[in-house]
Amino acid sequence: MGATPLLELQRISLSFKGVKAITDISFTVEQGEICALIGPNGAGKSSLLNVINGVYQPDQGLIGFNGQRYQKMQSHQAAVQGIARTFQNIALFKGMSVLDNVLTGRNLKVKSSWIEQAFHIGRALADEIKQRQKAEEIIDFLRINQWRNSIVGTLPYGLQKRVELARALASEPRLLLLDEPMAGMNREEKSEMSAFILDTQREFGTTVVLIEHDIGVVMGLSDHVVVLDYGKKVGDGTPDEVRKSPEVIAAYLGTTH
């Protein structure tokens, strides 16, 4: 593991009109690890992801990413810094083809201006072909070749989840945030998606933070688990440590009072 963590959250708090969603959460994610955020519904997991990539601005706390500290992140800035994500309810561009969706993931890598593209001069064609090559690599990697030209809205749910991962990977992210990548999937689809996530980490060295409810998958997949409950952190450690922690068991199974 690297000397400095890739992501470091320091005492993050977030509230919506007085309702506390996240209270004083701190944890670090090392370079190249797969970190799982777990917790019951409404524990603040998705909100925390939204804070990390700048969809929400925290009331308090600092976000350290890649050696820099941010009081708040803007979503564009997060994308430029190399943070990509997928959403709990698929947020693909439904009217566009799979290929176009993956290509939009590379929007920050495009060098040619729109004038060059409109007149098909200068860097436009070479740039387009280069982006296409990179996009095709990701399409190969996630084995969605045969749906390349299909309109995303017409694809089944499991495939859409994979296309969304492809779009996120196309940006060559340093940190990948996956919000319930396996929600609503059957066993085969889950193991396929887990394999893709592991491959991503191994092949590209991408650091992954994911939210998942299937504890079996989480324990098998992640190097590091953070447990949230009611917006507070109740557990943080390796899967084994977390499994044994009394607070975590309490949060999940309840306790006798």
Partner: peptide
């Protein structure tokens, strides 16, 4: 592609930059 992305889902478009 940017136009269509904004048309289909502008929040996601902003998140990917």
């Amino acid at each position: 592609r940017h136009w269509m992305a904004v048309r289909d889902m502008d929040t996601a478009a902003a998140v990917i930059g």
